[in-house]
């Protein structure tokens, strides 16, 4: 499993901009929103956390359709499925690699992007915490969606349709935690729910995803 993780990380570094691409997309979305809603600082500070969460979610979605598709095209997925590793472990390792390449850099960069929306420093902490707790769930849920659509010729759009509704609870609790934190309200409940979703998804979804991959390879 560590071998799979290391290989996927190495591949995304070598293929150029594995780390950079999601961040660049994040930056573009964050830049575009003020053009749409107007430059008033008060409005932007109000919607900032939500925008950052939605941007993180979209950036995460961007690279998902390649998660298993490249391995399926060059035959590596067949070989991984016949390897002594449990396929569930392969899925988990690949989801973790996806998170390290997309979710982790976004989490670390979010406070910087928060500056663009004039978010006060105490909110940075809430932003960092909620993204750190929530983005792993995005990668794991996304891996499940990618597993469902791995055999399809044009799975990209379908993948978004399948995965985005599954992202709803993560998005709600994530953005809510930041909002409550910023307003000085108790934010433990949404943070705990967020952590619960991440842990539950990480524990159970690799099994569903591996089952879907086996069905698709048949």
């Amino acid at each position: 499993m560590i071998a799979v993780l290391v290989r996927d990380l190495r591949l995304s570094i070598r293929s150029g901009g594995g780390f950079g691409l999601a961040l660049a997309f994040f930056l573009i979305v964050v830049t575009l929103v003020p053009f749409g809603v107007g430059p008033e600082a008060a409005v932007l500070a109000r919607i900032g956390p939500g925008i950052l969460w939605v941007a993180a979610l979209l950036a995460c979605l961007l690279s998902l359709d390649r998660l298993f598709a490249t391995d399926a095209e060059d035959g590596a997925l067949d070989l991984l499925a016949t390897a002594p590793l449990p396929l569930e472990g392969v899925v988990a390792a690949k989801a973790l690699a996806h998170w390290i390449v997309t979710g982790l850099p976004l989490t670390l960069a979010a406070p910087v992007f928060g500056l663009l929306y004039d978010l006060p420093p105490p909110v940075w902490g809430w932003l960092l915490g909620s993204l750190a707790l929530g983005t792993p769930a995005l990668s794991v849920i996304g891996a499940f969606g990618a597993a469902l659509t791995v055999g399809l010729k044009r799975g990209g759009l379908l993948l978004s349709l399948l995965v985005l509704p599954l992202y709803v609870p993560t998005l709600i609790f994530g953005a809510e935690a930041v909002r409550r934190g910023a307003d000085g309200l108790p934010a433990a409940t949404p943070l705990l729910m967020l952590g619960g979703i991440t842990l539950g998804a990480a524990a159970l979804l690799p099994f569903a995803a591996a089952a879907a991959i086996r069905v698709n390879l048949r």
């Binding site: 290989r7 190495r10 591949l11 293929s15 391995d71 095209e73 590596a76 997925l77 067949d78 070989l79």
Partner: peptide
């Protein structure tokens, strides 16, 4: 299957490795 090594048309090689 656990004793069988399979090789098909696709090699599963990663071009950047």
């Amino acid at each position: 299957p656990e004793a069988i090594a399979y090789a098909a048309h696709a090699d599963g090689l990663k071009p950047t490795l």
